[in-house]
Nucleic acid binder design. Structure first.
Length: 957
RNA sequence: GGGCGCGUAGCUCAGCGGGAGAGCACCUCGUUGACAUCGAGGGGGUCACAGGUUCGAUCCCUGUCGCGCCCACCA
């Protein structure tokens, strides 16, 4: 029994439980052991995450594909899991500690802190998973993984060690993007360039050997900078070798103001005569470009900041080296000063001594940490890097060759652009939460990388024994006792970038490197579904790692979907307060409505501007479906087990079978091509505008009538088409369809596991017959293929389409004219078919009940000519007349006819213009020309009928 | 500075070489036996602008204007 009203919240919980209980989404089910696998790995959401609109879209699309392929009999593995999200998670837990006024991370110590994070994960890490379940995601939840699982951690270590051995991971001291708030290095991708209104300070650097005079430009050189505080670390001034203003100064020295250090004026192409003063200060330790210049000229790197971005001058050997007497005072005054305060202070001092020439307003891009939001400091440290340039080569080639392709294709350009200009990937992070780098150091800083501590320590001790740093006996003791080697062999404290483990996701989740069984069966995956915002972060890196370790692309297709924005097109963000919470939408309208909305809007573009009203509209669609099923139930529509829709005899039934097959094909082809919006649109139109608006209405008179073979057949067909609809909609609206599936008939299994409409699989008649025959003799395949008897005949029926088309046209035209003429619904108007063909007359008789009901007609009769004073309609070339003498306003009808006539004449004129154009006739394809000729004939006929109608109307006056 | 994309009905968006579509909103009518979360009918668009290609352009090409996004170390 179907409930009277559709209440999503009620059924969603029940259906989710039913799927869970049946193990419906488990990969490798016994009944599919011989089936072809279909694999998708979920883009793992952060454990700290909660479902936002992007997740909702992303997972809806994946779920549509998975449910679709599952119904087509594939062994679907949708691999779920979450990402440990290093920085984000650590921040969450640290915030929690602060809120609870507990000791901070550093006070607590690494081990304790990590315990706390795991504890937090156990308590709160499951939130997003449950939210995905609410959305209806048909993942194999029994296989849920986490990037810091034991198995995945082993994969990380193995990959690190192997890449290190191959020289593709190395340690290097160079400038990194340093986050002075989070106190860690971050990768280029985690840096956001933000436009900032700042200043350009022009500073005077006195030339050595001249007496500095602010009013005498020959005594100094002007450099322009946006970061005056870094001048403390300057080690040169660069000018362009071709810049004639400065050529005479090349090789001379300047005295660094305030500091007193002598630094050279060098010639370097980097200096752009157009920019600033044409002379630029070089600070190799605090600027990426200057670093390069410094390397070219062998300049010292003078780092003047500490990890928190404060001036660090005292005890700073690099800074103090070569400074004149008397510089101690400055060091004392400035040491420990925060960088922006230092900027002010230094500018003030420069101004005091006349070293500041001018300040110009200057808007420029300033790097910010995407997590911390603070200004990133280029900072000189030791970090681990992946040789991304080398690893990118096979990944680029794979896309070039088409082994992997992007949908839509234009994203490949973005991919190539980035991959071909890729920089070394900084993978070490000064955090605690993450995969600790498997590297150990000896007392001289030598690195030992190995998969286990045991191995690394063994190697290290062996080495130091050999080097006679320690005795064999000492080495033996240290090998056995961690305490004894403490301080001698130490492990690298740092952890890896979160994306390092994510890059392995397509194979690490399948058991690599421990167990190859699932890797063999499910790798490579079939498609990756994701947003363009993580092409670089994730897709590119999976391609690199997949190519390197699996020697095969991780996925042949990357489907890039849009980003969800708010109604005005702004990116949703908490700070803007424009976030639409998908869970609220689910509460208000149901998960099915939300899913359908997202699928319907998933046209391949850049972004989706979501208006909540859309969701309401699709909730109404679900209600419509619900009520259509109730209607079938009320009319005792059941599907007999041996029913064959292709063998129907009633025209209306043949017609709906034909239309259903057409819709199935459309939907199937659209999903196969990742045109989710087309698939959803086709389903929507079929269910509402074909099945509900016409088929059920046309079927009503038969179903309300006496029992008859026609009634029996119609009941069966109503049920058959309904079942097909439930199948076709299931990938988009799994909950409501599963519920309706269960309550509309006794079923042997879940809709989620029911075969997709077979005719829609694009198989030939012979192939289908073969499958059906195989299924009959193969018990394993039976549950999949035999659940529904498959049709034996052909669905296509042009005659039925023509006949129902006539009915639809007639009813629509009559309704339209009735509305225009303001005829009240209670007035039943007679219908006279004038000069109707035998075929039309037969149709009119067959459909008399229906057209009377739907068009509010009285008697239906035939005549040679339309009665005088009647409204005359043209239905498929023949006249249908409504004798409304006295009822209608003749003037209005005249106007209506005149309008129709004018339209017909305009049509003729337009077509004639084409057909009389020799070039058109000569150049246009034949079928187009034929089409135009047909149009002309039709328009001429229409014109004739209109003229006649006007004559008849005159007669009435 | 490079790259990508968008400007189609009041709003949100499809379409993309042969007379423009949907949902919502709007107007009129409707308690007809699944559904008022509904039904019937209707109004509303020189498809940003200007050139070009073509027999034919909303669709292809070029340019202009407006908007958005991504990448980039430019003082």
């Amino acid at each position: 029994m179907i409930e009277k009203t559709y209440q999503p919240a009620d059924i969603e919980g029940r259906m989710a439980a039913a799927w869970e209980q049946a193990g419906a989404f488990k990969a490798g089910r016994a009944d599919r052991i011989d089936a072809e696998p279909y694999t998708i790995v979920i883009p793992p959401p952060n454990v700290t995450g909660s479902l936002h609109m992007g997740h909702a879209l992303n997972n809806t699309l994946q779920d549509v594909l998975c449910r679709f392929e599952r119904m087509r009999g594939r062994d679907v593995l949708w691999q779920p899991g979450t990402d440990h999200a290093g920085i984000a998670t650590q921040m969450v837990v640290e915030r929690q500690l602060t809120e609870r006024q507990e000791p901070g991370r550093r006070d607590m110590g690494r081990e304790k802190f990590l315990e706390r994070v795991w504890q937090w994960k156990a308590e709160s890490g499951g939130v997003i998973v449950n939210q995905l379940k609410r959305l209806g995601a048909s993942c194999d939840w029994s296989r849920e993984r986490f990037t810091m699982d034991e198995g995945l951690s082993r994969a990380v270590v193995k990959v690190f060690v192997q890449l290190h051995r191959e020289g593709l991971i190395y340690k290097d001291k160079r400038l990194v993007n340093w986050d002075p708030k989070l106190l860690t290095a971050i990768s280029d991708l985690e840096v956001q360039q933000i436009e900032v209104k700042g200043s350009l300070w022009h500073l005077r650097y006195p030339l050595q050997g001249k007496t500095f005079d602010p009013d005498d430009a020959s005594t100094f050189i002007v450099v322009a900078t946006t970061r005056p505080e870094t001048m403390l670390g300057d080690s040169a001034v660069a000018v362009n070798p071709d810049d004639e203003r400065y050529t005479h100064l090349i090789g001379k020295q300047v005295i660094l103001p305030l500091v007193g250090r002598l630094i050279p004026i060098i010639a370097d192409e980097y200096s752009d005569p157009e920019k600033g003063s044409g002379a630029v200060k070089i600070t190799p330790a605090h600027d990426f470009n200057d670093f390069e210049v410094g390397n070219r000229h062998g300049l010292p790197r003078i780092s003047i900041l500490d990890i928190e971005g404060r001036l660090a001058l005292e005890d700073n050997e690099d800074y103090l080296r070569g400074l004149p007497e008397g510089s101690a005072q400055l060091v004392e005054e400035l040491d420990g000063m925060e960088r922006f305060a230092a900027r002010k202070s230094i500018v003030a001092r420069l101004e005091d001594f006349g070293f500041l020439e001018k300040i110009e307003p200057n808007t420029h891009m300033v790097p910010h940490g995407d997590r911390s939001g603070v200004v990133i400091e280029p900072y000189l440290t030791d970090q681990w890097y992946v040789d991304a340039k080398t690893m990118a080569q096979p990944a680029i080639a794979a896309v070039r060759s088409g082994a992997t392709s992007f949908v839509p294709k234009n994203w490949e350009k973005t991919y190539f652009e980035w991959m071909e200009n890729i920089q070394p990937w900084c993978i070490s992070r000064q955090l605690w939460w993450g995969h600790q780098i498997p590297a150990w150091y000896g007392p001289d800083g030598k690195v030992f990388v190995a998969e286990t501590e045991e191995e690394a320590v063994g190697n290290a001790l062996g080495y130091y024994v050999e080097q006679e740093v320690i005795t064999e006996e000492q080495g033996h003791d240290m090998a056995l006792d961690p305490e004894k080697r403490a301080g001698f062999i130490t492990r690298d404290e740092d952890v890896l970038d979160t994306w390092f483990s994510s890059a392995l996701w397509p194979f690490s989740t399948l058991g690599w490197p421990d167990d190859a069984t699932d890797v063999e069966r499910y790798y490579p995956t079939n498609v990756l579904v994701t947003g363009f915002d993580i092409i670089f972060f994730w897709v590119a890196r999976m391609m690199m790692m997949g190519m390197h370790f699996m020697k095969e692309v991780p996925f042949p297709t990357v489907y890039i979907h849009a980003l969800v924005r708010d109604e005005k097109g702004a990116k949703m963000s908490k700070s803007k307060g424009n976030v639409i919470d998908p869970l609220h939408l689910i509460d208000d309208y149901g998960a099915d409505a939300l899913r359908f909305t997202l699928a319907a809007m998933a046209a391949q573009g850049r972004d989706i501007k979501l208006a909540p009203q859309r969701v309401e509209g699709y909730r109404n669609f679900a209600t419509k479906l619900w009520n259509a099923c109730r209607f079938a139930e009320m009319n005792e529509c059941f599907l007999p087990p041996d029913f064959d829709p292709t063998q129907a005899t009633e025209v209306v039934n043949r017609w709906i079978a034909h239309e259903t097959a057409r819709a199935s094909r459309e939907i199937t082809e659209a999903i196969e091509a990742y045109r989710f919006n087309d698939a959803a649109g086709a389903a929507y139109r079929f269910v509402w505008n074909v099945y509900c608006d016409w088929y059920l209405e046309l079927a009503k008179p038969v179903m309300m009538g006496e029992d008859s073979p026609a009634k029996t057949e119609t009941r069966a067909m109503v049920a058959w088409a309904r079942d097909e609809i439930l199948k076709l909609l299931h990938p988009f609206m799994p909950f409501i369809t599963e519920e309706l599936w269960a309550v509309t008939a006794p079923r042997s299994g879940l809709l989620a596991l029911t075969p997709w409409p077979l005719k829609a699989r694009g198989l030939s008649r012979e192939q289908e017959a073969l499958i059906i025959a195989t299924a009959a003799s193969d018990p394993l395949a039976a549950p999949i293929l035999m659940a529904t008897p498959e049709p034996t005949g052909d669905f296509r029926d042009d005659a039925a389409e023509a006949e129902i088309g006539w009915v639809v046209d007639l009813v629509t035209a009559v309704r339209s004219v009735r509305a225009e003429m303001n005829i009240t619904p209670s007035t039943l108007t007679p219908l006279v078919l004038a000069g109707a063909s035998a075929e039309t007359q037969a149709r009119a008789v067959r459909w008399s009940d229906v057209i009377k009901r739907l068009a509010r007609l009285g008697e239906v009769s035939f005549a040679d000519r339309a009665p005088e004073g009647s409204v005359q309609l043209l239905i498929r070339g023949e006249v249908a007349a409504l004798p409304l003498k006295g009822v209608i306003d003749v003037g209005a009808e005249q106007a209506r006819l005149a309008k129709e006539l004018a339209k017909a004449e305009a049509d003729i004129k337009r077509v004639d213009a084409k057909l009389s154009n020799e070039k058109f006739v000569a150049n246009a394809p034949e079928e187009i020309v034929e089409e135009e000729k047909e149009k002309r004939a039709e328009a001429v006929a229409r014109k004739t009928k209109m003229l006649e109608a006007m004559e008849r109307l005159k007669g009435a006056v």
